[in-house]
Amino acid sequence: KIATIAPEGSGWMKEMRSAAAEISERTDGRVNIKLYGGGVMGDDKKVLRKIRIGQLHGGVFTPTSLEQIYSDVNVYGLPLLFESVDEVDYVRERVDARLKAGLEEAGFVSFGFAGGGFARVLSNTPVRSVDDLRGKKVWVPEGDTISYRTMAALELSPVTLPVTDVLTGLQTGLVDIVASPPVAVLVLQWHTKVEYLTELPLLYTMAFLAIDNRTFARLQEADRAIVTEVMSRVYDDFDRVNRVDNEKALEALENAGVTFVEPVEGALERWREPVMAVNRGLADDGYISPDLLDEVLALLAEYRAGASGTAEAGSTR
């Protein structure tokens, strides 16, 4: 029994259902996966509690919801860490395995991470520099430690409201600025209430399936192999398909009349300095293992040194 907030009827859900069917067939019905879509089992915290008592056996999570279980998994989601998807690829190729092993130690089997693209800044007045953010009401999701710290470092004041208030909030001016990956923006229809999108890879988002170790260990070894094979394939697919979907979502936003703006010269650097200090602070406080952050930064430096000749080729999409 696996819960997710992906809506019933979405492409994602269909894929998961066919994967479940394949697993059931290949294990001769010994492994039957029941999916609960649309968030009907509750938010991530509730799903985790239900996994603990055995009502559910797994869930699809975003890194922030596993903060208390294995917070290192948030490392890719640190703000302004990456500049392009190529950088993400380079780092993920080398670090994913460590995160997977960490999750397993924390009690969850996972079959790979499905990237959700970069969150972008969406606003009603163009945002090209930090100064454009001053005095604006920036919405941040509830309970998101990284966002809070970042906002504090940039000396901005966040508006915390339920997600359901954001759409009307954008219309009435209660909220001026939101940050979210393009696909989510389309689903929540926020694009109908904003004018501008800043072309800035704010932070990398992803989602992943995590199955309770206790349940997984109860399966026969052959069955475990089948589940791992099918689910890893599906998550590889998601990772790839999501990238295309994100491209399409960005196009859709542009077609819907959202104006894309670039940060002004040097704005990125001015942002990065305090934000990287926040990232370092998170490591000092044990939120992210310091050696993990160092490893990722070293990989990035390595990549940037190697790719400096072709730096212009990097795409932020």
Partner: peptide
């Protein structure tokens, strides 16, 4: 065959539902 503390998990949502 579900642990009855599921009732408590659900009830606790009274303290997390936004409306």
């Amino acid at each position: 065959d579900i642990d009855l503390s599921a009732v408590a998990i659900e009830f606790f949502s009274v303290g997390t539902m936004p409306f």
